[in-house]
């Protein structure tokens, strides 16, 4: 009872409810397709939000981890015939280790140097994926075999929908647990003031590295899922623009708000689909949305609306 009354639990239950009833409103597989992509992006954003929102560290290179996870699955499954689940885990482990190695030097950087460092890291990954054409198919990409676990295949969009929906719930649950753990409290201290946190005995560097690794692994797993789901991969999954998209999702939805990340992912994934008729204006609207939210709603959609709602209730 006590657990249920916590706002996070309420949030996770409402998210589960939305996921459960949404299929009733989706007319055909095209709509499922869009919603599945929302889910995949949301998984990345929930992880990235831990980094940006809770530790205040920006990453302009997270698409690189997404791309690595995706290509790990693509290459191991489609070329070397590994079972998809094993490839997914192998990719996540590889990305986790890579992120761990990179975390120390990267997390030492501050402000714009951190932006440059993560940006450079993402771009180098994307260039490698572009250039190693024999493995990755180069700029024009590679096909990826279907996902399967012990011979079972999520054949249609509905099965994929449940799979991604379930994983999103797990991701949100993990993130909430991390935030409400002692580690999480330390993280928030880091965001507040690093000096104060370290004086209070928080091993700042260790926590920052931990979050960096966790967020990279979330991205990698989402990347693997995406690879199998879309059946085709291009290096643009790992490019600078995709990294920016991910950061924008987090910031638009609301930094330091797990559900904000989900909302941000939903808004920015749906936006281009809604704008297809005005496709000419897509970039214009996208850029303007980024600027306007950051200028007028610096805390993002969810926290801003939340406090507006609270004020209204009073």
């Amino acid at each position: 009872m006590n657990a249920l009354s916590k706002p996070e639990t309420g949030g996770i239950l409402s998210l589960a409810l939305v996921i459960a009833i949404l299929p009733a409103f989706l007319p055909n597989s095209f709509y499922f397709d869009v919603v599945i992509l929302v889910g995949i992006n949301a998984i990345v954003c929930v992880g990235l939000n831990l980094l940006i929102g809770y530790t205040g560290q920006i990453s302009l290179g997270h698409a690189g981890f997404f791309g690595l996870g995706a290509y790990f699955s693509g290459i191991l499954v489609s070329i070397h015939g590994w079972p998809p689940l094993v490839a997914l885990i192998a990719g996540a482990v590889f990305v986790g280790v890579l992120a761990y190695i990179l975390a120390r030097p990267v997390m030492k950087l501050r402000g714009h140097y951190l932006a440059m460092g993560t940006l450079g890291m993402g771009i180098v990954i994307s260039i490698v994926l572009n250039q190693e054409g024999d493995l990755t198919g180069g700029p024009d990409g590679m096909p990826v075999d279907a996902f399967s676990v012990f011979g079972w295949e999520p054949g249609n969009e509905l099965t994929w929908y449940w799979m991604v929906g379930g994983l999103l719930l797990i991701a949100v649950w993990l993130a909430l647990n991390l935030i409400n753990s002692p580690v999480g409290r330390a993280l928030r201290a880091v965001h507040g003031s690093e000096v104060a946190a370290s004086v209070a005995g928080v091993d700042v560097a260790r926590y920052k590295s931990l979050v960096f690794v966790v967020s990279a692994v979330f991205a990698s797993v989402a990347g693997s899922l995406f690879a199998h789901y879309s059946g085709f991969l291009t290096p643009s999954e790992a490019d600078f623009f995709h990294s920016i998209e991910l950061v924008t999702m987090v910031v638009l939805g609301g930094m330091a708000s797990v559900f904000g990340a989900v909302v941000g992912a939903a808004v920015l994934t749906l936006l281009p689909q809604l704008l297809t008729v005005f496709h000419d204006y897509e970039m214009l609207v996208f850029g303007a949305a980024m600027m306007i939210t950051m200028i007028f709603m610096r805390r993002g959609l969810v926290p801003t609306l939340q406090s507006a709602f609270n004020r209204w209730r009073k």
Binding site: I58, V251, M283, F286, M291, M294, I295
Partner: peptide
């Protein structure tokens, strides 16, 4: 904060 300004100028570039 820096993150916000970075996103604003990136938004401007896309715009």
């Amino acid at each position: 904060p820096i993150v916000t300004l970075i996103i604003i100028t990136i938004g401007a570039s896309i715009f």
